[in-house]
Design a protein around this nucleic acid. Sequence first.
DNA 1: GTGTGACTTGAAGTCCGTC
DNA 2: AGACGGACTTCAAGTCACA
Lengths: 82, 82
Amino acid sequence: MPTNNSHRYSAHEQEIMKKMGLRVRQLREASSLSQEKLAELAHVHRTYISTIERGQQNISLTILIRLADVLGVSLATLFEDT
Amino acid sequence: MPTNNSHRYSAHEQEIMKKMGLRVRQLREASSLSQEKLAELAHVHRTYISTIERGQQNISLTILIRLADVLGVSLATLFEDT
DNA sequence: GTGTGACTTGAAGTCCGTC
DNA sequence: AGACGGACTTCAAGTCACA
């Protein structure tokens, strides 16, 4: 997602998207993976991980599943703090 | 989602999509809501709820948030069993 | 009140590059 | 190694008609 599309989502939704991004980043770094490596393992594009971690993506369920799998956590764990 | 696109997702992904759908249906019925009413409250289309509950939708995060909100549960709770 | 196929459109997600 | 942009393709999202 390019530049600023913040108007598309409510403040509440943006907040959760940001939290999800930070959570992914935390878990990725805890696994000592680069964005590139995580992207490769989860079969998503390198630049997409970047936008996710910055809270700019409205991620779909299948992508969330793949990320959870690679990061070695359950989906529930991924949403723990939201 | 039109016709049969089941080939698009892995068995694992389809399984979770189905579980999510059942979970939504359970929570909706526990709240004594019709699909129509849930749709109205969550600001999504009636027929979309139908496809979600049958596990045919690769739901995005924002839709999950709206459903969780209306159903009165956290996102983590929504993913409890997966 | 719900399931489903057909359809449109905006966003998800990819791929190239530069900084 | 990561942020970010532009252009592109694929699909989620939303609507309708009918069963």
